[in-house]
């Protein structure tokens, strides 16, 4: 069984980004990462590979030359094969054209399952998985939190709904599953394995290889045009409140981020375990979460 994982290289948003008209102003040395949701999708594929024999993982990205970095990351994490659909024009492609190009490559790959991130950190349109599934003519499931192969050709999936609810569904293969970024924590990839992977050759394809030209993918072909970008509204001022119930590292991260947001009313209870349990139950009943 072959799993294809589609990944995207995005800017690390921990580094402050400035907006200039309709483009993001880059730092002199911008830091790129694998889109967090794509990384969780890759981890899910690796988990399946670890528990089932005969799995093979192919990771694919469509992007400029620098996107090679995320493929090295994928190899270091344990992907069997990587494909780089390389063209500078992808930098300004919309979801539709990107999905079109990806589908041309994936069609040739004899896949059984496609995993994508549900949403990208930069544009966040959540459209590539849908366009891709459509152009391949296979079903898609979005917001996947967990998946389990029940029998060959059949997968059970847990979808993320609002307020912590889950929808459990079954879906036949081949299919495309878009994994939610909260479906796991990224598995750490060590520097030694990254260095090892950086030495491996990456299979790269040009637009010509898949029968497309720059006209098919660049801004000209895109159905969506970015008119303007604006920085987010400033967040409410946070105040650091010392809290003895937090660990030092939690306190540290609050100190660093300026503290807990002072929006929601919170109260600190102190006392014996029994007293605290009682108060929590009382709160839950008062809030209507538990029946009276």
């Amino acid at each position: 069984m072959k799993i294809v994982v589609c990944v995207k290289q995005v800017l690390d948003t921990r580094v402050p980004l400035a907006v200039n008209g309709s483009v993001v102003q880059k730092e002199p040395s911008p830091i790129y990462i694998m889109n967090p949701a794509d990384r969780i999708a890759l981890d899910k594929a690796l988990e399946m590979k670890a528990s089932l024999a005969g799995e093979e993982i192919t990771v694919i990205t469509a992007g400029p030359a620098r996107a090679e970095q995320v493929l090295h990351m994928a190899l270091a994490a344990g992907a069997d094969e990587v494909v780089h659909l390389k063209d500078e024009a992808f930098e300004a492609s919309d979801a539709y054209t990107t999905a079109l190009a990806l589908s041309r490559v994936i069609k040739e790959l004899n896949y059984t399952m496609i995993l994508c991130g549900n949403r990208s950190l930069d544009i966040g349109a959540s459209q590539v998985p849908a366009f891709l599934a459509e152009s391949l003519g296979i079903p898609q499931v979005t917001g996947v939190m967990e998946l389990e192969i029940m029998s060959p050709g059949r997968v059970k999936l847990w979808r993320r709904l609002e307020k912590g609810r889950r929808q459990v569904i079954e879906c036949p293969l081949p299919a495309l599953y878009a994994v939610d970024s909260s479906a796991g924590q990224p598995r750490y990839v060590s520097e030694f394995s990254l260095r090892q992977a950086a030495k491996r050759r990456i299979r790269s394809l040009t637009l010509a290889d898949i029968g497309l030209t720059q006209v098919d993918v660049g801004p000209q072909a895109s159905l969506i045009r970015v008119v303007s970008l604006s920085p987010p509204k400033p967040r409410p001022k946070k105040i650091y409140i010392p809290d003895g119930s937090l660990s030092a590292s939690q306190r540290m991260s609050y100190l660093l981020s300026g503290g807990l947001a002072k929006g929601k009313e919170s109260s600190l209870l102190e006392g014996t375990a029994d007293y605290l349990a009682e108060q929590i139950i009382k709160y839950l009943i008062d809030e209507g979460i538990l029946p009276k």
Binding site: D12, R14, V15, P16, S29, I31, L256
Partner: peptide
């Protein structure tokens, strides 16, 4: 990525 463990930009 950032050169420090505090998740702050260089």
């Amino acid at each position: 990525l950032l050169g420090n463990p505090w998740e702050q930009p260089q």
